[in-house]
């Protein structure tokens, strides 16, 4: 008797991804759908895709979705979640969406401790618009708007979202992962599941930052892109758990009851 170890997730539509070969989005979509299946929450999940490459996420996620204007996902997700507190609400955002144009919305949704989950794809570049500099672009990294490489004096530093957000009071669970390796993919999936569970338990704001490949705009092969994450990106943005108040909050809740 053979055992099924891998199959198309039920909550992932059978559409062909428009993402480039080697892109991390399709992996994160797939594992998020696997989590939704495993937790049995497809019927109560509402997703908010961003402006960016993942703007068409509703072509892939078989859950209710509403597109947000660029950067406004956490505000919109806050509106949905406060209206429907028993639904699972997540926003899916890129680095420009979260750490540039939508920094205020992201910061304040986190600070209010909105009981939502943010899946934050950090690929150090603007993908959809053609490879411009992102807030998370590495120093000296060449992009179409930093043709000589990002220079601190002109362009500032890579924004370390997880480090910054870990200091925000309203954040309950925050982990940075990477999908550059099978082990990283498994870890990312576990983190997303933990974040959704955190939300399901009503424990507050959770965010998973995912270091993700963009071979096209990095002008690398898919394999080199994975290596670049491990060798370069992950040094600037070290993976790990940046905040985890889940156990403490659960304990406090037990004491109260």
């Amino acid at each position: 008797m053979s055992k099924i170890v891998f199959q198309h997730p039920q909550s992932l539509k059978h559409n062909i991804f428009h993402y480039c070969p080697g892109c991390g989005h399709s992996i994160v979509h797939r594992i998020t759908c696997e989590v939704i299946d495993e937790m049995g929450i497809r019927g109560i999940t509402i997703g908010v895709p961003p402006a960016g490459c993942a703007v068409l996420a509703y072509n892939y996620f078989d859950v209710d979705m509403i597109e947000a204007p660029h950067g406004r996902g956490p505000a919109m997700a806050s509106g949905i979640k406060r209206s429907l507190p028993d639904r699972i609400v997540f926003s899916y955002q890129g680095d420009g969406d979260l750490a540039a144009i939508g920094m205020a919305e992201s910061f304040h949704a986190a600070n209010r401790g909105e009981n939502i989950t943010v899946i934050f794809i950090n690929n150090a570049v603007y993908g959809m618009t053609g490879g411009q500099m992102a807030p998370t672009t590495m120093l000296n990294q060449k992009t179409t708007t930093s043709p000589a490489g990002r220079q601190q004096r002109l362009d500032g530093y890579p924004v370390k979202v997880s480090e910054i957000f870990s200091k925000i009071g309203g954040v309950t669970y925050l982990e940075r992962c990477s999908v550059s390796s099978p082990a990283g993919v498994n870890k990312t999936k576990k983190a997303i599941k933990k974040a959704f569970q955190c939300q399901l338990d009503g424990l507050g704001f959770s965010m998973i930052e995912v270091l993700s490949m963009c071979p096209t705009n990095w002008k690398m092969s898919s394999v080199d892109s994975c290596k670049w994450i491990d060798d370069i990106l992950a040094k600037e943005f070290p993976p790990g758990i940046y905040k985890d108040e889940i156990a403490a909050l659960k304990k406090a809740a037990e004491v109260r009851s």
Partner: peptide, 20 residues
Amino acid sequence: IQSESEIAAINMIAGASAAG
């Protein structure tokens, strides 16, 4: 919700409107 900006406010109500 006292929003962080007018931009956030309009998007919050858009989300809540979608939610019914």
